[in-house]
Design a protein around this nucleic acid. Sequence first.
RNA 1: GCCGCGUUGGUAAAUCGGUUAAUACACCUCCCUUUCACGGAGGAAUGACGGGUUCGACUCCCGUACGCGGUACCA
Length: 520
Amino acid sequence: MKLQYFTFALMQQQKVRVRFAPSPTGGLHLGGVRTVLFNYLFAKQHGGEFVLRIEDTDQARYVPGAEEYIIECLRWCGLNADEGPHIGGPFAPYRQSERKETYRQFAEQLVKNGYAYYAFDTTEELEAMRAKLKTPENPSPQYNHAARLQMRNSISLSAEETAALLEKGTPHVIRIKMPANEEVGFTDLIRGHVQFNTDTVDDKVLLKADGMPTYHLAVVVDDYQMKITHAFRGEEWLPSAPVHLLLWKYLGWESDMPEWAHLPLILKPDGHGKLSKRDGDRLGFPVYAMNWTDPKTNEITKGFREIGFLPEAFLNMLVMLGWNDGTGKEIFSMPEMIERFSLERVHKSGAKFDFEKAKWFNHEYIVATDNDKLAELFLPVLKEKGENASLEYISKIAGMIKERCHFVNEIWDHGFFFFQQPKTYDVAAVKPKWSAEKTQFFMDWASVLETMSDFSLETIEESFKQLATSMNIKVGELQLPFRIMLCGGKFGPTVFNIAETLGKHETIERIVKGLDAINA
RNA sequence: GCCGCGUUGGUAAAUCGGUUAAUACACCUCCCUUUCACGGAGGAAUGACGGGUUCGACUCCCGUACGCGGUACCA
């Protein structure tokens, strides 16, 4: 009985729980989506739960609409959270701003236990301190164990002075008191053992003057209270890991601390550094998952969804950025990803984003998508172009040209002539080898087509070839002109397929118009 | 400056001490196709540098260089 209970308790404790904790400040970066993906895959693989938590502790950077936008991005990707501000859950609220009261008590507890202290320095005083201590050898002076004695805080001040300041309601923050010369280390699931000396990290602010926690306090308190077992985040957080480690220890929760994994960064395609929205603008590709409209400027930043990415392709592309299963396999369905994903095979180094490869992934998914589905996805694009057609018609076209599309939207670029007659003709492509006989051929053939009752691919092609042979003209020499008449240029699928799809009437009309254009 | 992390072709990358160092994208040539794409055949192109350890290092260790990240009352 006792053993059974123990086993049950252990299982409960081991239930995998991960979280994605974005701050609602703007568009969702593809690196963020990849972090979600890795979290999601890990959770699903272990039958665990995936939590969405909103880190909105910085009221100055808060952007209205960003939270809804993030949730919609996740929905589009199919990476839905099991708990979150939009659906609730047993650990609600999931917005840090709504948990504000929780943090203060833990910060106070840390002060009481000597692990943190009140600091009354104003922004100006902090700036003055940094300016004073700044040297070429030390360009960014820290508020650390040495500096804190020169500042106004509950360590440098007497207990009476501190109490008086507090009583007067003097604005203050609570800072962690980093110990001197201590080694703090942990085992990162991706990087192995990582160690820091506390002398090199400063007394980070835990609770801001407005009563809101900083990320450092909030992430620890929330991960603890929400029973997070595995915490994945970008590599840029690695340097502040010792702060978090110490906080877990100082709050007495060390045995509940999640396992950490610091994910490699996604880098610019050219040069070096983290991929930013600016790089996308500069190089002509999206960085955000979906279109993001800045509520202040109304400026729209293009997203992967809107340029015609399929969510499955988007995720597949992302999972390969920093991870592989070791077999060379590149196309993974969601169930396959969940099955094969492993943190051990996540790279330590950052990966440069390659838009060409991303396009290739989308192409692969478009080819694999059935034509009816493509037609549905393309219909809105078509309407935007001011045209309309039946799903059946679009589906047929999609099947013919999807091989040459990287994006759903490109069905238009490669097949616009199915929806409208050519406005211009690439006559230069046919003129040099044009002749009166060829004009005669097309006039005669148009008459033949007119009488045709079965306007099918086979009959069209057969009559074309028959007439060409009887007139002693090479079939090959007639195909390009025919293409120009139907499409206007040197593009599109097999000509006879186009003709069949266009139908008898339209084909004949285009032959007549095309002939005019060529002979003009 | 300091601290941390990293470094296999242009890009993503396999290899977990022994290979002619895979594969994919991109690029080039040819074939197919009198458009393009798909498909097929081929090509060019990679272990930052220097020391160790070892019979043997891309692989392990130590330096150096370079890159990135952090060094906020932002996350």
